[in-house]
Design a protein around this nucleic acid. Structure first.
Lengths: 215, 215
DNA sequence: CTTTGATTTGACCAACTGGTCAAACTCACG
DNA sequence: CGTGAGTTTGACCAGTTGGTCAAATCAAAG
């Protein structure tokens, strides 16, 4: 006899079966908890036990849904980069240049406000040398930025925007918007009265209008 | 008999004696290695063994110079915040407003170029909630920023600068300059040909001139 | 109600990590 | 060259951590 029937499954996600209700619920709970923990402690600072407890599961039970700590982290990062680039992808070559860039800035700032944990997860990964997503950066990310930088350059050549270095313009947008999520603690320590996000959109809007308005 | 003579010393840095040549050399080597490791891995990601090996010492030998991993980290952070704020302290109320701010921006950018490890050490600490320096942020840092924000406000009131929110102006400077150190990997992944620092000063200079030049 | 696969868990393990300690070694100086 | 303070280390320890496993429990289709 060549083989016995299927050996007992030792993990979720069997071959091609649709995920059960329980699988969906638990995987979502794990990813949510993992986002909390990874974004606050970094990859090495996080422990499986923390994530499991925070998700309301035991450690072995968590490992029934994901094969390893790294697998959870990878799952989060994989979804993240794509989401993160959506605002830039949405920049429309047919729109009004200044308005397109301001709209991009607003979308990006809104993401920092709505998804600060994701922003910090990303920041942790990059600051520590992007060991797990370096490839995606130099392929997917670079490709998209090259494309949009070319678009900005053409807008400048047409006299629709004041001349600036297009790559550094994009970096500045990332930097300014993500700063409000990543360095939140620092900003709040300095501005301890009001929510920093209140005035940020107006400031950043002014900044890019003055920088980019054509002469 | 109340006490025997001095018990055998179990750590360096005896009472008030001046540090020996060996102590100076080894403490410096440890702090240098620790800066490498902490800035690249974060506090929890770093191990005493890594730091010791990188400093050319054995683990127990390292612990002869510093009582714990946390003590090394604290020593680094303590020196850091002060150095980090020097460029802002140097902003001169008697100088020309626009030039003073541009000079501040340049000093800050230069620090990111010269001390990227320090910048990343700081970024790691803040992104993860500043557990070890939160107090210093809401006292020393806040005090200095309040002072300089008031100065900027007065410059604006005098019509020497275009009106902007002074706190967000300062945040934007931190954000833009430190971004080049903290997100170095990402920037290099996108601009794989040239050194990102080459064009950054000119871009940032232009940005703040257009933002702040009085009408 | 039974069966079968999905889910959960307690017990366990090996590797790693921060830290200790007594003994050994080195060095400067009288 | 002897001596005591300063320096170094191998052996060790306890707590943590990522991950395994067999057995127990649960859910739902028949």
């Amino acid at each position: 006899m060549p083989s016995k029937s299927q050996p007992a499954q030792t993990s979720a996600r069997t071959k091609n079966r649709a995920p059960t209700r329980i699988q969906q619920k638990n995987r979502a709970a794990i990813l949510g908890a993992a986002l909390d923990v990874f974004s606050a402690q970094g990859f090495r600072g996080a422990t499986i036990d923390q994530i499991a407890t925070s998700a309301g599961l035991s450690k072995p039970n968590l490992l029934y849904y994901f094969p390893s700590k790294e697998a959870i982290h990878n799952t989060l990062l994989a979804g993240l980069l794509d989401t993160w680039l959506d605002p830039l992808r949405a920049m429309n070559p047919a729109g009004d240049p200044l308005q397109e860039i301001l709209a991009y800035v607003h979308r990006k700032l809104q993401m920092s406000r709505d998804y600060p944990r994701e922003s910090r997860l990303f920041a942790n990964e990059i600051v520590q040398g992007a060991p797990r997503i370096h490839d995606a950066l130099s392929t997917d990310l670079k490709e998209l930025v090259d494309e949009k930088a070319a678009l900005i350059s053409s807008w400048i050549a047409d006299g629709k925007l004041a001349p600036v270095h297009p790559y550094h313009l994009i970096f500045s947008i990332w930097s300014l918007t993500q700063h409000y999520a990543d360095f939140d603690v620092q900003i709040r320590a300095v501005m301890n009265t009001q929510d920093p996000f209140d005035d940020a959109p107006e400031f950043i809007d002014t900044l890019y209008r003055r920088l980019l308005s054509p002469p």
